[in-house]
């Protein structure tokens, strides 16, 4: 009985296998497996790293109970007690905050200007900003370091130099996102506003910006995330430990004798980024709903 059933199942499997070999793209059966495996591969290590941040023991590879020891309970080694780790967290937040505050308005103006401006310069300006996207960070880091040390010496290494670096490499993301939205909107709304007697600034403020807000918020989220993520620029332009960011700290101690406090630091950074993104998405959703647009936030980000 069982053997018959087994044989039946086997031949069915064989048949399916043959069918699949003949036509691997028939019905995508392998694809969901690949996708799920990829997602597990990309996310599980992070979850494990987060789990060890709550370890009660010192190990970062053996589960030893649960505690907040590495967050604040340990008087010397926790993120809260260790000045280096605490400083890194605040430096990351400071830079990301500055980057968002400066880059988003600067990039939005750039996007509007470049999209509407029909001149010889606009193509070149667009090419330059796209070039920042594919320039390896080490190249930009070197370039900025040399410029601040040799030419623009009034910009000291540390927060000012790092902030300028972050703004420079994140500008293009605002440009891409806002410009994409602008092209989708088209110039009609502004023209209508102009026909109704609005000045150019008024037309931007009253007709364009309300439609751009979702894209602006989305770009703010991206800028925050890539600023928190940045390592090379922050390292090259750091003036020392007091301006090291979280990734720089991870790099410096990740190779030596880190405690789970390093995991805790990374987890906190992640939590902050996600909180910021969640807040942004909420805002985005509210703005979007106000406009009755059904495109999902994630798809918007992806595009």
């Amino acid at each position: 009985m069982t053997s018959v059933a087994g044989a039946g199942a086997g031949s069915a499997r064989n048949g399916r296998l043959r069918e699949w070999i003949a036509n691997p793209w028939g019905k995508p059966r392998v694809l969901p497996l690949v996708t799920v495996a990829y997602l597990a591969w990309s996310i599980l290590p992070i979850l494990i790293a987060i789990r060890f941040s709550f370890n009660e023991g010192r190990s970062r590879s053996t589960a030893q109970g649960w505690s907040f020891r590495w967050y604040w309970e340990d008087p010397d080694l926790s993120v809260w007690a260790d000045p280096d780790l605490r400083t890194a967290l605040f430096q990351s937040l400071r830079l990301a905050g500055i980057a968002v505050l400066v880059t988003v308005p600067l990039g939005t103006a750039l996007a509007i200007g470049l999209t509407r401006w029909r001149g010889r310069g606009s193509g070149a300006a667009r090419a330059v900003s796209l070039a920042t996207l594919v320039t390896p960070e080490i190249v930009m880091g070197t370039a900025l370091l040399l410029v601040f040390v040799n030419l623009l010496t009034f910009v000291p290494l540390g927060t000012p130099a790092q902030a300028i670096g972050h703004i420079t490499f994140s500008l293009v993301f605002v440009l891409i996102i806002v410009r994409g939205r602008l092209l989708a909107i088209g110039p009609e709304y502004e023209e209508a506003a102009r026909d109704l007697g609005a000045s150019r600034l008024q037309a931007i403020r009253l007709a364009l910006l309300p439609m751009l807000w979702p894209a602006i918020v989305a770009s703010g989220i991206i800028v925050f995330a890539i600023s928190m993520d940045d390592f090379v620029i922050s390292q090259f332009l750091s003036s020392g430990t007091n301006t090291d960011t979280v990734p720089v700290r991870i790099y410096a101690t990740g190779r030596t004798a880190p405690t789970p406090a390093l995991n805790a630091l990374a987890t906190l950074t992640l939590a902050v980024t996600i909180a910021f993104a969640a807040l942004g998405f909420l805002l985005w959703w509210l703005l979007k709903r106000a406009r009755g647009d059904r495109e999902s936030a994630l798809e918007h980000l992806a595009h």
């Binding site: 993520d229 991870i250 990740g254 992640l270």
Partner: peptide, 13 residues
């Protein structure tokens, strides 16, 4: 939203 270095740290673990 997870920094590259943190993802490397996870792998070192």
């Amino acid at each position: 939203f997870i920094s590259y270095l943190m993802r490397m740290l996870a792998w070192i673990n």
